[in-house]
């Protein structure tokens, strides 16, 4: 069952990628092509009872660090140096619901 334009619009909204009408069409055909040509084989294997491996790390487990401050917190100018908008010591973002005054 292939993905519709609406499906892809929903995914784009969730993934926060604005797509215009042409891009949406192109993306839809890409996704369907990838699913059919590249990914489809994964659905054909006999996998009953196969325990999945989520990490290629052998028996490595329980990796933890001690609860000791690293003293590696960033100076404020470094913490904020790559942001496009700041105010006082904060990161600044536009109105979340879009019904405020800022444009």
């Amino acid at each position: 069952m292939s993905l519709s334009l609406d499906d892809v619009r929903g995914i784009a909204e969730y993934a926060r990628i604005a797509l215009n009408a042409d891009e949406l069409t192109e993306m839809t055909s890409y996704l369907n092509d990838a699913l059919e040509r590249v990914l489809e084989p994964i659905t054909h294997f006999e996998l009953d009872g196969v325990v999945p491996v989520f990490h290629p790390i052998g028996d490595l487990s329980n990796v933890m660090r001690d609860d000791v401050p690293s003293n590696e917190s960033l100076p404020i100018d470094v913490a904020l140096q790559n942001t496009a908008s700041q105010e006082d010591r904060f990161f600044r973002i536009p109105s979340i619901l879009g019904n405020g005054g800022e444009r």
């Binding site: 926060r16 990628i17 604005a18 790559n82 942001t83 109105s95 979340i96």
Partner: peptide, 20 residues
């Protein structure tokens, strides 16, 4: 997402618009 670093449009209507 354009908040802490990276490209950000400067005329966004709202947060979702900015990030998208």
């Amino acid at each position: 997402d354009g908040v802490r670093y990276g490209h950000r449009p400067n005329d966004a209507r709202d947060l979702a618009d900015m990030t998208s």
